[in-house]
Design a protein around this nucleic acid. Structure first.
Lengths: 147, 147
DNA sequence: GTAATATAGTTAGCATGATAACTAAAGGAG
DNA sequence: CTCCTTTAGTTATCATGCTAACTATATTAC
């Protein structure tokens, strides 16, 4: 996360970057603004999901399973791949979702190491309940503060 | 952080968002892309700072103190304000920086509750050592993957 | 001057990200 | 078939974000 509240002015960045060759102060400012806006948005989304007894990550797991309708279930590893988070984080997240009865976890018949993860009815309902507010936040997010 | 590796296509978002009024799928996609790019950039920066025995937050504390040249020191609260992080995070970060001898912390003469924080010589040098690579990463960040 | 309130910072404890090291099962070489 | 390597997932531990509750000092009301 990146929570520097008052970004440096372009002038200040130029003051630093003049000393280093090949650095474009405009691009640096753009990257700082990118991180700042995304950090605020992520913070807002986490607060939103906390109100639904979820986190952004747990929500995304539900989305990922839901968006492969041709598959009844995904393995934990497939979920980790699609999320680009480490496996221990997936393990922990699965446990939380299972304890909340939002997913159903079972051993794979083909591979005893694998765990097959499917949405429960409650999981589908939780997902549906969160989607409108999620999209509303994302829709608003990029509008007010420009690029 | 937001690490969904393969973002939904605009079509998929439309599939969801058609069901909710007033949501612009393009804006939703833009917000998702914003979070994804920022998360990758933050991950890259944290890896960079880890190589300097720092974190992005600890680095930003050094920057914040350094960029107020008319002030010899800032209080912990002023740093928390500028960073927009919670006070306990500042407390912990200060302790780490002090243990690394990058800052000097002393009690305020005017207010016994306050702690005045100043860069040490080593702190200034650490900052200088990190700046070129930091700007190089930020400069690169917004170029390749477009908006 | 004393009591009530506000402010600066710390401590305790939780959530979510990470890596390293582990267990157990699968797959391949001979 | 047995050994070796790879793969799936877990456990243990750490880092960094948070809130709630605390201590100590400052400030304000009277």
């Amino acid at each position: 996360m990146f929570f520097l509240k008052v970004l440096p002015t372009t002038k200040m960045v130029e003051g630093y970057s003049d000393r280093y060759s090949g650095v474009d102060a405009e691009k640096v400012m753009e990257a700082l603004g990118l991180m700042r806006r995304a950090s605020l948005l992520i913070r807002e989304l986490e607060a939103y999901f906390a109100g639904h007894d979820l986190s952004q990550l747990r929500f995304l797991v539900l989305v990922i399973i839901d968006r492969e309708p041709e598959r009844a279930s995904l393995t934990a590893g497939e979920i980790a791949d699609r999320l680009d988070v480490s496996k221990p984080v997936v393990t922990r997240t699965m446990r939380a979702l299972e304890e909340a009865a939002l997913i159903d976890v079972s051993s794979s018949s083909r591979d005893a190491r694998s765990r097959e993860v499917a949405l429960t009815r409650a999981g589908q309902e939780k997902l549906e309940a969160c989607l409108p507010g999620y999209f509303a936040i994302l829709d608003r997010a990029t509008s007010p503060e420009g690029a």
